[in-house]
Computed example of a mutant assay.
Amino acid sequence: MVVTKNASCGCCGAWVERMRANGFRVEVHDVDNLDLIKTRLGIPAGKGSCHTAEIGGYFVEGHVPAADIKRLLAERPAAKGLVLPGMPLGSPGMEVPDGSAQPYTVELIGQQGEATTFAQH
């Protein structure tokens, strides 16, 4: 997995550590402008987050749980990747000490940029 993020983002580092703890080998690249990579990969407007990963020919945008990424790689749908817009409280890398969490939906982005529900947490 290759992750591109801003150097100063702490939650991105926490997400990377969650991915490593789940068995992913992660290479990290810090950049000043994430828009270039998001455009290259075809991440739809409004679906962005604070870091972008590439794995197995897919993109993974934001704080997507490792189990969802593993499912994506096992099922290999005809799609561009997964997105979790924003930074939902309780998602991987966005945990808080009291265990609070917001419900969130991971979306699958199809070849034409259409979004469908992939997983709900």
Score class of each variant (00 low, 15 high):
C11I: 06
C12W: 06
G13W: 12
G13K: 15
G13M: 09
V16F: 13
V16A: 11
V16M: 12
E17Y: 07
E17S: 11
R18W: 12
R20N: 07
A21F: 11
A21N: 07
N22Y: 14
N22G: 10
G23R: 14
G23V: 14
F24D: 05
V26Q: 10
V26E: 10
E27W: 02
V28G: 04
V28F: 04
H29I: 14
D30S: 14
V31C: 06
V31E: 03
V31G: 02
D32E: 15
N33V: 15
N33I: 12
D35Y: 11
L36T: 11
I37V: 13
I37M: 09
K38L: 00
K38H: 10
T39V: 12
L41D: 05
G42P: 05
P44K: 10
P44L: 07
P44S: 09
A45T: 14
G46P: 13
K47V: 10
K47M: 15
G48M: 08
G48Q: 13
S49M: 06
S49Q: 06
S49I: 04
C50M: 11
T52C: 00
T52H: 01
T52F: 00
T52V: 03
I55M: 02
I55P: 01
G56N: 04
G56Q: 09
G56K: 04
Y58A: 12
Y58H: 15
Y58T: 11
F59V: 01
F59W: 01
F59I: 00
F59G: 01
F59K: 01
F59M: 03
G62Q: 04
G62T: 05
H63L: 03
H63M: 08
H63T: 04
V64T: 05
V64F: 04
V64Q: 03
P65R: 02
A66K: 01
A67K: 00
A67V: 03
D68I: 04
D68N: 05
K70G: 05
K70H: 07
K70A: 12
R71F: 00
L72C: 04
L72V: 01
L73Q: 10
L73G: 08
L73E: 05
A74P: 07
P77T: 09
A78F: 06
V83Y: 01
V83M: 01
V83D: 00
M87V: 06
M87P: 03
P88T: 05
P88L: 09
L89C: 14
L89M: 15
G90I: 14
S91A: 13
G93P: 09
G93F: 09
G93S: 06
G93R: 09
E95Q: 13
V96H: 07
V96C: 12
V96E: 11
V96Y: 08
